[in-house]
Design a binder for these strands. Structure first.
Lengths: 211, 211, 211, 211
DNA sequence: TATGAATGAGGCTTCATTCAT
DNA sequence: TATGAATGAAGCCTCATTCAT
């Protein structure tokens, strides 16, 4: 799959990894701005500071870059959920990220809603992408479950497996929903979103519900 | 905007409308399968049973078709919210739609999550699409508020403006979140989603919250 | 060559001639504005107030319209030279025509330098056009010779055949040159051109020359 | 304007210039034969011995090629006027060029009347071309004035500014007229044109006129 | 490793022309 | 006679990908 030879010195392998990273960074930016189909290899190369031809020494095709970008998303989401103590904290964090995106327009390493949606849309078409995304979703649900368990532990509450699953599902839908709404309505008042979330998210209880 | 002359007989106008509908139907299918930029005019023409050139008698450009498809989404969402009496009923309805999509793969006129996401992703890039989507979002929020007011009336509860706004926001995020999650995880158990929603959505109260 | 049937009543033949004239009038305008290749049959039809398809009942092809337009040019030039008594009068008349063109932008029936050049350029490519133009040139030279003979008669001078030929050549080159220069330099001061021509054109003498 | 990056090694820049030249050479030929709009990029590429796509590495669009060709015309005319000592010499030279064109059909670098007329016709439609042509006309008039001043100096005559302007105008019209007539009438006897010019062009005098 | 020239396929769009009505 | 729907070819241009250097 990868065009890079398995062999080579330690040093050259490190170099190769650095090159791949540069390409992916450039691709992320281009894909975010123009979409997978709208971004050209030439533009990605330019952004990465190399010729388009050279990219093919590190990735077999544009599709492989897309797959790699898709694969990276998992880390971004995981990082976002690590060390978060409650659902509300997590939701507020995503609101912060959305505001960052609106104002600064996407710094490297930050969560990029445009890319997130591009990947999701592509998953509807490319089965390989769909499989990657689906696998990530399960992991992300696990991460979310951990956040909720942490919150429950802090609150001194014990959740049944069923309650945990339901709270996880709800929280995830809310989170994705916030992202989608922010993207679809650039005029959406994020402070109001934050306030609403604060008012609406209740302390965890053992019993299922409520919204 | 439209390349068709204003005049023409009754019959020819009807015919033109039929042709436009055929093209839009074909475009919907192609865009859903391949994305706006992955679908070619040739493919759309083939799907519509006509030459690619003929499409330009009814639409000035591919972009105009994309705009028309985007504009249509509003009707689809509006139809879905009409005559719905409560948030839970609405959410269950969207779950039904997602199951339809998974099984039948998108019938004409039905809500198409792939297209919905394609439009949203495109809104990140094309300001014209962003404006359309943004306008639709406001209308959809109004529709959602009506659903909630209906539910409140039925429950004999009076909602403050603030509470109404918050419930609307929550419900919309949940709804969009359900769509996104279903698309991103084809393995997601829709029956479990339905069950969770039933358990989680509480009767409306005057007070803000809770989730 | 022509798609029109030879038969038909007197009335229908007259009608056909009127239609041809309308088409040619429209084509003249379109060709002048957009060039032979830049003007579409649809646009010509629109300008003529008929469908593009109908044009083919009166002309076998676009090329035939071009040929017809080319053929018309002869009349325009001929009309311009009729009843003109001297070279200077003729040259001043062309200066007037150029000013009309600059200000009014080409009325129907008027001499159109853009069309004149379009035809000339096309003559370099299409042998059929070249033949038409070449034939017209001979006729136009004859017309010019008549103008000069008229001038000589008025001046009481007898020109040798050789002198006549030379004066004709000179006058024609001057005339075409004025047209070309006016087109190529929209800033050219026509009044100065007129003044220069007045100063430069001397009474005819029997002897060859001078300039 | 140019799609080529500014940087690059000495060698690659030289190569790029050579490619541009090859393309322009091919375009000149194609435009001369078929006109700006009749010549296809594919044909130009074929003539230049490269794929049509490659052309876009050296020119941003077909329009840019047209502009480049148009711009070149100035040099061709300028070259023709350099080191010419009199109006008659200049006119005879253009007659020579026309004969070359008729016989050899346009060698690279030679003056091409078909192209000259194509450019002029295009100037009637495209304001960008019109501006280029207009600017060239002024320069060409300056060049012509210099030729005339040279002739006056040789003849020991001092020309007033007004006389200089008038002689320049006359000479230029004659010159353009000769070109136009040669193109429009392929049967025109160039030797007779030459003889007529010789007979008609008189030595310069201080006084305005005569023709 | 790295470049950038080169290609061929394909995309969007226009248009002359034909034909059923 | 007249329309306008319909097509197929062609045009301009872009781009992923390959390859000689």
């Amino acid at each position: 799959m990868s065009p890079m030879p398995a062999g080579g010195s330690e040093k050259s392998r490190a170099r190769a990894q650095a090159q791949r990273a540069r390409i992916l960074e450039a691709a992320r930016k281009c894909f975010s701005e123009a979409g997978f189909h709208g971004a050209s290899m030439a533009r990605i190369g330019e952004q990465a500071g190399m010729s388009a031809g050279l990219i093919y020494r590190y990735f077999a095709s544009k599709a492989e870059i897309i797959r790699a970008i898709t694969g990276e998303q998992r880390e971004v989401r995981m990082r976002a959920m690590a060390e978060v103590g409650s659902r509300l904290e997590l939701l507020e964090r995503i609101v912060d990220k959305m505001r960052d995106w609106r104002t600064s327009g996407g710094r490297p390493g930050a969560f990029d809603p445009a890319l997130f949606l591009e990947v999701t849309a592509e998953a509807c078409r490319d089965p390989a992408i769909a499989a990657l995304v689906s696998a990530q979703e399960e992991e992300t649900s696990d991460d979310m479950a951990q956040v909720i368990e942490r919150e429950a532990r802090t609150a001194g509450v014990t959740l049944s497996a069923e309650a945990l699953r339901q709270h996880t599902l709800l929280a995830r839908c809310l989170l994705d929903g916030v992202i989608l709404r922010c993207v679809r309505d650039p005029g959406l008042d994020l402070e109001q979103v934050r306030a609403s979330l604060r008012a609406l998210v209740r302390p965890l209880t053992d019993q299922p519900g409520p919204v």
